[in-house]
Amino acid sequence: MTRYYFDIDDGLYATEDRDGVDYPGLDAAKLAAIRTATSIACDLSISDGARVTVKVRNSAQLLFEAVVTLQLSDHPPDSG
């Protein structure tokens, strides 16, 4: 098991992970980052769009980041 630290920013609230979570390897940590980013995105109001960034590091360095971008675009009025 390796300890990974997940720093998360959803634009409104940023958390720095001091505890860390143990996962068997990088793939499991990536899956956790994706699930976390999408479930945090589910709780957001997207009226202006939103971006959830999960930066994952071990005790030494930044390893990867998962980003979920929510974008709400009004469709242009039909000109035809």
Binding site: F6, I8, Y13, T15, D17, D19, V21, A32, A33, R35, T36, S39, I40, V54
Partner: peptide, 11 residues
């Protein structure tokens, strides 16, 4: 996820 729980508890 455990990671999400960790963040919510911090919040």
């Amino acid at each position: 996820s455990t990671v999400h729980v960790n963040r919510v508890l911090q919040q």
